[in-house]
């Protein structure tokens, strides 16, 4: 596989996270590696820093990882997860300020064509405008 930016989906709900990842695979294809996580450490609704770190590590590439999140805690926990990873990895991880589903599709489409991380992020965030 060519080295493309990877995507991580972080939702409060494991079902939402999995569903968004499914949509990306179906709409965009499998040129982009995508990992997802959702739920708190007990499996209820929420997010989990350890699981986010594991999802990032699963698809990490020096080309970059773009994270898409749903609500507040998902963003805060994703920022925490990024900071807890080694600095050389953290430098290649961005959290997109974009709606989860739309942002995931936009970011993945851009990533599937080989774009760099900053382009992937700005494409995801473009949908806001």
């Amino acid at each position: 596989m060519t080295d493309n930016v990877s995507i991580v989906i972080v939702s409060h709900s494991p079902k939402v996270a999995e569903g968004v990842a499914d949509m990306v695979r179906q709409m965009v294809g499998d040129e982009v590696r995508i990992a997802f996580c959702g739920g708190n450490p007990d499996g209820g609704l929420g997010t989990n820093v350890g699981a986010i770190m594991a999802a990032i590590e699963e698809v990490y590439t020096p080309k970059g990882v773009a994270i898409l999140v749903d609500l507040g805690g998902a963003e805060t926990n994703s920022e925490m997860a990024r900071e807890m990873l080694p600095a050389e990895m953290a430098a290649n991880i961005v959290i997109c300020n974009a709606p989860l589903v739309e942002g995931a599709i936009m970011a993945s489409t851009e990533a599937s064509c080989g774009a760099d991380l900053e382009t992937v992020r700005s494409t995801a965030e473009e949908f806001q405008a």
Partner: peptide
Amino acid sequence: NVGGASGP
């Protein structure tokens, strides 16, 4: 372990 924004 907290699982929400209050954890971080």
